[in-house]
């Protein structure tokens, strides 16, 4: 199978470091005004089955800086809106001789299907409520621009963890790089059985962000209130808002992050969003460099010792032992 970036969960720490280092070197090169001229420029399909201007623009920028070409494919106005299945779309794009696809989809796990069908490389640009690996890599690059190491940091992720792919990817990434991850939110917005997700669960903000070096806010969708998962934005603000007051519980100068788009005044106040601790705009910029790294990394020859871990989701340890009848071969 071709090398793809589907999750942070299946990467090892070395691979994550490799990509962050690569991103940092791309940042340096671009700051110096260098132009990258790859010997073998790739053609990347940007498949946004769910609309996202920010991530798409970031990937477009990354592709251009790398000297690659991209072509856009969005589900509205395409064959998808005429009832074509994801499978047929992917098979068609394969025959269009794209080298790789970047895929955003509303269904968790959809890039796994694309990876099986597409005879090329796939980068997950966010799948449902599962993972958003390039967001987490960008966040890690941002943290490492200010702090020497992630090892030993206290990282607090605050808000709607249950529905957040950003939370999952970041929890895995910071956990794998040795941080103490805390997941903070109301019971209704937290997985009822967090067991397999890394991180300790808190339902109150204060103990959760105590001594935090990094405080990440998650976006609170309005539909959560309609579904009765949160009583009101007012209540959320009172219980979980990251602001000038509540940031006092964290380490002085703790980095404040948000994947955007912000609900200013809900997840964070103006101080947190615009103040000296805010990393929000740097996150956006670093997003470009890690996406360059991801696009470069999928086409690079895997180093022998890492190859197995980095490219293929490993056979899950649990699926082997549980059943006598066994799982699919």
């Amino acid at each position: 199978m071709n090398r793809s970036l589907l999750t942070i969960r299946h990467l090892d720490a070395d691979t994550i470091h490799e990509m962050i280092d690569l991103a940092a070197s791309f940042r340096t090169a671009i700051m110096r005004g260098e132009t990258l001229r790859p010997k073998d420029p790739k053609v990347i399909g940007l498949l946004f089955f769910e609309s996202s201007t920010r991530t798409r623009v970031s990937f477009e920028q990354a592709t251009s800086y790398l000297g690659y070409r991209f072509t856009n494919f969005s589900s509205s106005g395409s064959s998808m809106s005429k009832g074509e299945t994801l499978k047929d779309t992917i098979l068609t794009l394969r025959s269009e001789r794209l080298d790789g696809v970047v895929m955003r989809h509303r269904a968790s796990g959809a890039p796994f299907l694309a990876h099986q069908l597409f005879d090329g490389h796939v980068v997950n640009a966010g799948d449902g409520e599962h993972e958003h690996p390039t967001q987490a890599l960008g966040d890690a690059l941002t943290v490492l621009s200010h702090l020497k190491s992630i090892q030993g940091l206290n990282v607090a992720i605050v808000g709607d963890v249950l529905h957040s792919r950003v939370a999952r990817s970041n929890a895995w990434l910071f956990h794998k790089l040795g941080a103490d991850v805390r997941l903070i939110g109301p019971r209704t917005l937290m997985p009822t059985h967090g067991g397999l997700l890394p991180g300790r669960i808190f339902h109150d903000l204060e103990p959760g962000i105590e001594d935090a070096d990094v405080v990440m806010c998650l976006r609170l969708q309005k539909e959560r209130m309609q579904d009765g998962l949160m009583t009101s934005t007012k209540e959320y603000r009172k219980m979980y808002q990251v602001n000038q007051e509540t940031l006092r519980w964290a380490r002085p100068g703790a980095l404040v992050m948000h994947p955007g788009p912000l609900n200013r005044g809900v997840e964070l106040d103006d101080f947190a969003a615009d103040g000296p601790q805010s990393m929000i705009l740097q996150q956006v910029e670093n997003g470009i460099y890690v996406r360059m790294a991801a696009l470069h990394w999928i086409f690079a020859q895997p180093q022998a010792k890492k190859a197995a871990k980095a490219t293929e989701p490993p056979a899950e340890k649990t699926s082997k032992k549980k059943s006598s009848a066994g799982a699919k071969a």
Partner: peptide, 15 residues
């Protein structure tokens, strides 16, 4: 099933 695996995969669970 709503449980630790649905939490991991970001799939909506059935209690």
């Amino acid at each position: 099933n709503e449980g630790s695996v649905s939490a991991l995969l970001g799939l909506k669970g059935i209690p």
